[in-house]
């Protein structure tokens, strides 16, 4: 439990009233993000992202699975969120279950709403087999704002995931899948539609984007919005009493920042640099 004394809390509130934050950022500015992809050789796709002090590792494993009844998706996404013990003792044991299932639900809901893997090429045998992407997320260090770090890392890991090419052989009503053994016969996924979360904390009367851990502890409310590249909202998570008027003002900021952030992420992955 990150503890903040009353004096520190009062100081934080006063600085935010003036329009800047303790580390010198503006109210709607992200901390420096550094990104590495392909860090796990055994996974189909992986990324490691550092947002300020928060560090997240994501691995994607691609499998072929049976289609879940009554689902029309080409692809099944299974998210698993875990927090390593070295990061924080808060997230061990029973408390961790509710925290991680909330995050998993948020990611699942956002990706389903955004219809990310709409591609026809990804469908295997409709009604029988489909791709199953298992996304394993491990939080290595908690420095505030885990939701954003997780969503950004997931998106970059998925964008560098290599899906092997599969030949479907139909014989006497049953299907056989032959996976190409050639390591170069792979496709990358198109994740332009994947959303990313933007988290705001309500401190005093102001919303701040990308709260650090001190700011999160002093916050009396929180709003996480998942936006995709078009600025459409895919998922909302809120906590605390939020002012209705401020919300509408926030949405324009969300749209703008979301676009900029997603563009930068895609650029970085393409150029192979860290920002």
């Amino acid at each position: 439990m990150y503890a903040v004394s009353k004096a520190e809390k009062a100081y934080l509130l006063d600085t935010i009233e003036t329009g800047t934050r303790l580390d010198g950022r503006q109210l709607f500015e992200y901390r420096p993000i550094s990104l590495q992809v392909g860090v796990l050789p055994s996974a189909s796709g992986s990324s490691r992202l550092r947002l300020g002090e928060t560090e997240v590792l994501v691995g994607v494993k691609v499998e072929v699975g049976d289609v879940v009844e009554s689902s029309n998706d080409n692809v099944q996404l299974l998210f698993t969120v875990e927090c390593s013990g070295s990061a924080s003792a808060d997230f061990l044991g029973r408390e961790a279950e509710s925290w991680s299932s909330e995050l998993q639900n948020a990611l699942e809901s956002a990706y389903r709403a955004a219809n990310v893997f709409d591609d026809e090429r990804l469908s295997l045998v409709p009604g029988k087999f489909c791709w199953l992407f298992k996304v394993d997320i491990l939080v290595l260090d908690t420095g505030g704002n885990m939701m954003d770090a997780i969503s950004m890392a997931t998106r970059t890991a998925l964008s560098t995931t290599l899906v092997p090419r599969v030949h479907i052989v139909q014989s006497e009503g049953s299907f056989e899948l032959e996976i190409d053994d050639n390591p170069d016969a792979c496709d990358t996924l198109k994740v332009e539609k994947a959303p990313t979360f933007l988290t705001f904390s309500l401190i005093g009367n102001h919303f701040v984007l990308d709260p650090s851990i001190q700011e999160e502890t002093c916050a009396r409310g929180k709003l996480s919005v998942a936006v995709d590249a078009n600025g459409d909202i895919c998922h909302v998570y809120s906590f605390g009493l939020l002012d209705a008027v401020e919300l509408s003002r926030l949405l324009t900021i969300i749209k703008k920042t979301g676009k900029v952030l997603l563009n930068r992420l895609d650029e970085c992955v393409k150029n192979g640099e860290s920002s």
Binding site: S109, A113, A114, H235, S238, L241, L242, D243, A244
Partner: peptide, 10 residues
């Protein structure tokens, strides 16, 4: 003020 907003869909 709003206590909570829950949203599904795009």
């Amino acid at each position: 003020q709003l206590c909570e907003i829950q949203h599904t869909g795009k």
